[in-house]
Amino acid sequence: MSAVAAARPYLPGLGLLAVGALLSHLVAGAVDGLQPLVVAVAIGALVGNTVGTPDAAEPGVGVDKLFLETGIVLLGAAVVVEEFLAAGPTVLGLVVATVAGGLLLAEGIARGLFRLDGTTPSLLAAGASVCGVSAVVAIGRVLDSRGSAITFAAATVLLFDAVTLVAFPVAGEWLGLTGRQFGVWAGVSMFSTGPVAAAGFAHSPEAGQWATVTKLARNSLLGGVAVAYSLAYTARSATDPGVRRLWAEFPKFLLGFLAVAAVANSGLLSPAALASIGRVSDALFTLAFVGLGLSIRLREMREVGGAAVGAVLVHLLVVSALALAAVRWLL
């Protein structure tokens, strides 16, 4: 099969994402103070929940995550390494503390307070503490969870992704946080990478960069969390823990982000070239956020269980309140 023939099934979906992205720029250009990336999510969610995504467009729309990850790799070009190194130890400390503390807290709340059992509390804890749906799926694979438990936990995480995507920028504005404070706060408190980046950019470009970088640091802990869970559940299903598992779960695009940040800060590329790379990154984010909106299904969210929602809600409130206090104090 030639490359053209292989690409053909993706064209309708890519066209849909492109039209959504173009529309979001037109709407944002017409309304003062409106961010194109926020409009992109809104347009996607509107289409996804009214007419729905056409079957023919499904393969192409599914490329949104590749666009998001490539956009993040290119975001490396906008990173001023000195600035991030200066705040690095503080942000890294916050990330490790919120992931480790968040996992224990979510397990405790789900099992102790809401009487959930089996692997569901661990799936919810991983989704809420590390990186959303991808963490749910990765930990579900490690723990040999039932497909229904993974779907249930993933739907719960998606519900909170949709709610926090709207709530965090509003709260950040109301609390009067700086771009850096808001970005780090969203980066350690929210769940999935796409909504974290979208919420960050909805506040300001600076917040978007900090939110994405903080979230990447959190995502990079997924391998370690997978190993910890496989060891904790040894009696049930520990298979192949160690370096191979750690590497299998490591988000590889993070290496690309670091490589691009290194090139951008080496002085090799001119400011005009870096600005152009930034525009490509923005375009990819807009396409990805239309896809993110299309994946938000309000009807499916109504089917999520009350106990799981309660457990994740308590976890989110506690973690985001503590993280808010920390970013205000430390940054």
């Binding site: 990850e69 695009f253 690309g256 070239a273 790379i277």
Partner: peptide
């Protein structure tokens, strides 16, 4: 390829194109 590797390859490809364009005097 894993999606993470695809993103890495695409990202580095975009940077390489910009570096080549700069060398050719576009930027």
């Amino acid at each position: 390829l894993d999606r993470g590797w695809q993103a890495l390859a695409l990202g580095l490809g975009v940077v390489a194109v910009h570096a080549a364009a700069q060398a050719a005097g576009v930027f």
